[in-house]
Amino acid sequence: MIPTGCSYHRPQSIDQAVDALTSGSGAVILAGGQSLIPLMKLGQSRPAALVDVAGIASLRYLNVEGRRIAIGALTTARDLERSTDLAAAVPVFAQAAKQIADPAVRARGTFVGALAFGDPGGDWPAIGLALEATLEVCGPSGSRQVQIGANLTPWEAIKRNEIIASATIEVPDGRTAAVYAKVRHPASGYALVGVAVLLTLDAAGVCTRCRIAATGALRRPARLPTIEASILGSNLDGLDLEEVAASLRAPLAGITGDAYAGSAQRAQLLRVLIHRTLHQTVAKLTSHP
């Protein structure tokens, strides 16, 4: 039950959606609703108007072209989990999708919506950050491309009257692999701690690209640049991954905690997951050169 009323719009096009967002103050986008509706039910979010974009057919697609993946705003976790093309091109999507909530939530929750929302314990934001998604953002003055980087998160990149129409990911050439792992919160299933890793190696085994993103342990999902820097340019054969993970110190002050898992506990889990995801990514690169 949602205690307070709100109005509802069901635009048929992106332009209509942008209009609805612009004309109504306090209007928010509703896609899968798997984050927004629970918050509304608990009274933690009270939007004045909902702009349901589910009727915009042009937002529902998943294109896999070689190493370029385009994900429309209405593409669900379940779509990503089940796509055989995607599994062949970028297996981390299915691997991560299986760790999100449960099948019923995955059938409605969208990838782009999760990026836009940026829940502190969300799984997709870690993937979006590690794979450096490019967002197509549509607003009153047309559309623009926003590349997510170490210092720009999706939820910071968009204004209230803009809509993310799609996310595009280009997997780097060369020996590249990515892994996502999480420890579920025992009650909610959100990431108590989650880590996404993407590594690219050159022919000599030297790391030419390293992206590590964490979720759950921080106030918002974020990349871990100091850890990335300690790997980039190194030959992974000679690197003690456990030591790399243990070097996680700088952001400790920003590690969150609650009554169920304190910040020291989350920091410990974060180190373990960084070590294990790095190890698994390296293992994938070595088994499939």
């Binding site: 608990l42 025992p186 009650a187 909610s188 959100y190 009554a259 169920y260």
Partner: peptide, 21 residues
């Protein structure tokens, strides 16, 4: 895992299935 936790002011922290496992 199951524990109903209270804050200092006597409010219940574990007040939903998001927090009570």
């Amino acid at each position: 895992g199951e524990a109903l936790l209270y804050a200092e002011d006597g409010s219940l922290i574990s007040d939903s299935f998001l927090l009570y496992p």
